[in-house]
Amino acid sequence: MAEPFVSDEELIAWIDGELSAEAAARLVEAIERDPALAARAAAHRRLAERMTTAFGPIADEPVALPRKETAPVISLAEVRAARAEAARTPRRWAVPGAIAASLMVGVLAGQQTMMVASVDDRSGALTLATPVARALDRQLSGEAGPIRVALSFRGKDGGYCRSFSGQHIDGVACRSGGGWELRYAAPASHAAGTGYRMAGDDVAKAAVVEQLIAGDPLDADAERKARAADWK
């Protein structure tokens, strides 16, 4: 007995839950009798599931409102001003060795002290969690996202570094061994939900950037190129 033709439109409506109970029941019966129809239904269902699986989790990632100030967390002007200031006055602290540099958490330029809780003092401990590393891999400065990248620059060892600001942590990370390693971190100053940043944190972070940076920060063009080359 020839089955009545079932259109893709009807199959899709069924998968989307848009058919009436009666029409859905008729369709289920038809599918049970017709393997070819069952295969078409399964293909449409797989597509729907792939879409849901791939896109669904995006809505679970928190996104912060754009900051009131549109400038990056650390502006080029601030960094340049800090460098000019540093050139006029003697360094208040000696350049630490490579090991000290990689543990530069909470080492500040004299004004205040800030420590990050729960960072183990062992090699590799400062490798960043995947969402942060992914943001550092792919986001350009100033783009919206759970993590916002503020500034990119070359470190004195030639590798790229980026300063960022997340829901819970503000930091500076540099490329190391194919990944990103944390060089500075502090609790995010906007964690209280105010949406505004406090100036003091930027001073501390700017001091770290100033310590690490070789030359000027990357402009938008250089940053896109660096991203295209996977920050190598």
Binding site: F55, V63, R138, Q139, E143, A144
Partner: peptide
């Protein structure tokens, strides 16, 4: 702010890559 994650997901359906989706989310906000 509460609807931004959902907007960002929708942006991924419209934009050509994740970076553009984040740009679109940012511009929308």
């Amino acid at each position: 702010e509460a609807v931004l994650p959902r907007l960002r997901r929708f942006a991924h359906g419209l934009a050509r890559n994740p970076a553009d989706a984040d740009d679109l989310t940012q511009a929308t906000a």
